[in-house]
Nucleic acid binder design. Structure first.
Length: 874
RNA sequence: GCCCGAGUGGCGAAAUUGGUAGACGCAAGGGACUUAAAAUCCCUCGGCCUAAACAGCCAUGCCGGUUCGAUUCCGGCCUCGGGCACCA
């Protein structure tokens, strides 16, 4: 390049220098405060939110993917002229901080705030369009104060209540363990056998909202079906009947719940859970039964353990009477009956329930068939339970009825005898939020021996968590910290003890989306600004939160609505669940059987002539390693790639581009170093193309006012066709991979377009402007630099999304495909407005087509305008 | 067991409403430039047949169906991934 041409580049460098242009762009955005969101009622609002991270200390690739998707959507909406809010914050309470504290002897608060600083810096270097003034951390008393405030209100309302719950208890560490922390029945830290213990806990009455949480899913068209299905499953609504079995020779009834009242006449015994009051009563006079019940209670509480357990039981010696026949039925204790569902008791119908069949067979209890298929008789004797719906027999007055008929008639009969009625049962349980841990939001309750559990009054909030503690791993340090728990009762003024449990960290993450609207509100959880911004228009996060977080947040939104804090029933209008980031694994199996995983960059891959991987070896010793397949990036598989390395080496734009290009957002993404190289190459090519254009001097973009040669019109058609596709892909479909592919295709065409005429250069200017703007949500830094280089004073970040010029899409001729009997036989070119007859004639005239229709009778001619002609011959 | 989702070249993927299967990228092979290498640029690239083809045949997990036409719709199966699970 000559000196004169170089001069014309202005401040555009001849070579693409990501670090330099990224710093420049970020400095500009920060100085101009372009991402600061203001409540402006004259502009349409758009609230784009990505799930906030746990401040572990370092971003991982999953974060980069999540936040890039969110940023692309936010920046696109901004270019549509919307007033965009995109905030970021920290889900800052939780166990890892306590573990790190124990290891490093540093208080969790210090560790957490240091991590936040490090990760904030990383996020900034990726150029996300966040309004950093709204940043929040859930461990900040200014945040959790309002959580405590809501807690006290809900406690007074009865939406939060206290009861004893069964938990995993580590007797050495004196703490409750999560199911994940129980390994083969022992505490993960202490190694002590875990006990089941009943301790008092605070619960959110989420079951009161079960119906609304379920029904609301039908009004969320912007949510993935998969997530809705998982939530429906979790809530687990079933319609059934409560049936009362009167105690034989005593007062009262034994309640059971069943979804199959039609099988009632086949009940041959009744089974209760080990924790059922009747079991305890019977055990009082029966030592063997007592021992059996204790054994049942000792077993693990995890679902997996329960599912694999063998069915066991013991007769209680008690009897109940069948509500219709009066027949005496024995009551058994069975380990397959759960205290937490229904009534903790079931009517057992061995003929029509698999579990009851297995149990009855084992203990030789009677099996009575009462349901048969509508068109056949049942096998006699049964070899397995018949669990389908069918027609009743052996059921007296109910014989011949189907499921619905039996349900209704049985309900009427039970009601008449006051021995039962229909009921809806949910699988969903109330949400226990007490945690015997230090690094969490204190539960704002004061225990007074005279006044009971008293919520902390508003003027005593927040109940501040001391931040200078280093936990030692045994129990909750708050319970040993007199300056924390010693207090006085707000009601009677007497000596009282503060609750030392903290809340489940899912509580903080259930309402942060609302707090971002008014992060500095000092008089309430949120203020009027929440009504301006909510609901979140687009929420983006991992599928792993499909149930818990997303269900709790929906629940909280309804709680806040019922407190008059927010309007609307749902917090998130649209939800996008991004796929995982995967990478290749390599390992060696050692003599001990232990697998050692190697970092992919330390491994050399050998390929065959077709490029297939045939073997791999370690760079350091040249010896072979096993190719372990594609797995989720993780520490244990040693296949994680550090985003920082990637940013340092290639720049943020390359990282963002690769992430968006490798797969559509909802699918899993396979990491590929070569793919990253490819993304980087594309940006270099684009830069070079712009340099070549700009170095020839400035030119105004083509405005459509003068005529073009066929080559020029073809190029302009390609430009606007690409624009139309990218607009749809980014704006509607969220298929950023195909949007990028379309721009790449266009860039390839531009590289080949060699036209130095004024018109040609004006077309190139228009094309480069469109490429720059359509890529700008994905690679905002390079777009910022290119936009300036193309001669614009206004920054790219403030530019509007370009408009398709429909007139550019019109072509004089259209290429059609000609099929004979559905097989492709030729191509023809016709005038775009050609009549059907002309199209048919052209198709029939094609030389190759003629070979296939010659001497045959044409039975049908199908013309799909603009697409194809299919000639059907006999 | 129940509920979702997915199966397309050597690989990641595309084909949006039933209309040209494999866009775009990666890897691989060949060439140009270079003292050389890297970088860059150009060409080839599903399989079979063929000297070659813009001639043909086969091909979207398998088997069938609907249709002028099926990766796409329907039925049955297989495999993989995810979720839930003694939920009465």
């Amino acid at each position: 390049m000559g000196a004169a041409a170089k001069h014309k580049l202005g401040y555009m460098d001849e070579h693409y220098q990501p670090n330099k242009i990224e710093q420049e762009a970020q400095r500009y955005w920060e100085e101009q405060q372009v991402f600061k969101a203001r409540e402006d009622s004259t502009q349409e609002k758009y609230y784009c939110l990505s799930m906030f991270p746990y401040p572990s200390g370092k971003l991982h690739m999953g974060h980069v993917r999540n936040y890039t998707i969110g940023d692309v959507i936010a920046r696109y909406q901004r270019m549509q002229g919307k007033n965009v809010l995109q905030p970021m914050g920290w889900d800052a309470f939780g166990l890892p901080a306590e573990n790190a504290a124990m290891q490093n002897k540093v208080p969790p608060a210090r560790w957490t705030y240091d991590n936040i600083a490090a990760m904030r810096k990383q996020l900034r270097s990726l150029g996300f369009a966040y309004d950093w003034e709204r940043e929040l951390a859930t461990c900040d008393p200014k945040y959790y104060r309002w959580e405590q405030w809501l807690f006290t209100r809900l406690f007074k309302k009865g939406v939060i209540y206290k009861k004893s719950g069964v938990v995993n208890w580590d007797p050495v560490d004196q703490t409750v363990l999560a199911n994940e922390q129980v390994i083969e029945g022992r505490g993960w830290r202490s190694g002590a056998p875990v006990e089941k213990r009943e301790i008092p806990m605070y619960y959110f009455r989420i079951t009161a909202y079960a119906d609304e949480l379920l029904a609301g899913l039908d009004h969320l068209p912007g949510w993935p079906e998969q997530v809705k299905a998982m939530q429906r499953n979790w809530i687990g609504k079933s319609r059934g009947m409560e049936v009362y079995f009167p105690y034989a020779g005593g007062n009262g009834v034994l309640k059971v719940f069943t979804t199959r009242p039609d099988t009632l006449m086949g009940a041959t015994y009744v089974a209760v859970a080990a924790e059922h009051p009747l079991a305890a009563k019977a055990a009082a006079k029966n030592a063997k039964l007592h021992a059996f019940i204790e054994e049942c209670k000792k077993g693990g509480v995890t679902e997996a353990e329960l599912a694999t357990q063998e069915k066991k039981g013991m007769a209680t010696g008690e009897f109940v009477m069948h509500p219709f026949t009066g027949e005496k039925l024995p009551v058994w204790v069975a380990n397959y009956v759960l205290m937490g569902y229904g009534e903790g008791a079931v009517m057992a119908v061995p003929a029509h329930d698999e579990r009851d069949f297995e149990f009855a067979t084992r203990y030789q209890l009677p099996i009575k068939q009462v349901i048969r298929p509508a068109d056949a008789n049942c096998a006699e004797p049964l070899t397995a339970a018949y669990t389908e719906h069918g027609v009743l027999f052996n059921s007296g007055e109910f014989d011949g009825l189907d499921f619905e008929g039996a349900f209704n008639k049985m309900e009427a009969a039970l009601k008449a005898k006051k021995l039962g009625e229909s009921r809806i049962q949910f699988r969903l349980r109330d949400w226990g939020i007490s945690r015997q841990r230090y690094w969490g939001c204190p539960i704002p309750i004061i225990h007074c021996s005279r006044c009971g559990d008293v919520p902390a009054p508003d003027d005593q909030l927040p109940v501040v968590l001391p931040e200078d503690i280093v936990p030692d791993g045994s129990g909750n340090p708050l319970a040993k910290l007199a300056r924390f728990y010693e207090t006085s009762c707000p009601r009677c003024g007497g000596k009282a003890r503060r609750e030392t449990d903290t809340m489940d960290t899912f509580v903080e993450s259930s309402w942060y989306y609302a707090r971002y609207c008014a992060p500095d509100a000092t008089h309430g959880m949120v203020d009027g600004r929440a009504r301006h911004w909510l609901p979140v228009d687009q929420y983006i996060g991992g599928i792993e939160h499909a149930i818990l977080h997303l269900l709790y947040a929906r629940f909280f939104h309804k709680l806040m609505r019922d407190e008059g804090l927010v309007t609307g029933d749902e917090p998130f209008t649209k939800l996008l669940t991004q796929g995982m980031v995967l990478a290749e694994t390599f390992y060696r199996v050692h003599a001990s059987g232990k697998k050692e995983y190697f970092f992919p960059r330390d491994v050399k891959i050998e390929r065959d002539a077709k490029g297939r991987t045939v073997a791999a070896s370690l760079n350091s010793d040249g010896q072979p390693v096993t190719v372990g397949g594609i797995e989720t990036m993780s520490k244990s598989k040693n296949n994680g790639v550090d985003p920082q390395q990637l940013i340092d080496q290639y720049g943020a734009d390359t990282a963002r581009l690769f992430m968006m290009f490798a797969a559509p957002p909802e699918q899993s993404l396979e990491w590929s170093d070569a793919g990253v190289e490819g993304a980087s190459r594309f940006l270099k090519r684009l830069w070079k193309l712009a340099v070549a254009h700009v170095s020839q001097g400035t030119v105004a973009a083509f405005n459509g006012q003068y005529s073009l040669t066929p080559e020029q019109s073809e190029l302009r058609r390609a430009v606007h066709r690409a624009l139309a596709k990218v607009s749809d892909d980014v704006g509607r479909r969220y298929t950023f991979n195909t949007a990028i592919a379309a721009v790449m295709e266009l860039t390839n065409a531009l590289t080949k377009f060699d036209d130095a005429s004024d018109t040609g250069r004006a077309l190139m200017q228009e094309a480069l402007e469109i490429v720059t703007l359509t890529l700008s949500p994905i690679v905002p830094h390079v777009a910022h630099a290119l936009w300036r280089a193309l001669g614009h004073q206004e920054a790219a970040v403030n530019a509007r999304w370009p408009q398709v010029d429909e007139s550019a899409l019109i072509s004089d001729t259209i290429d059609l495909v000609v099929q004979v009997n559905g097989k492709l036989r030729g191509h023809v070119s016709v005038a775009s407005g050609a009549a059907r007859e002309a199209v048919e004639a052209a198709a029939l005239a094609d030389a190759n087509v003629k070979r296939y229709i010659e001497g045959r009778q044409i039975r049908k001619l199908i013309v799909v305008p603009g697409k194809l002609v299919n000639i059907v011959v006999a």
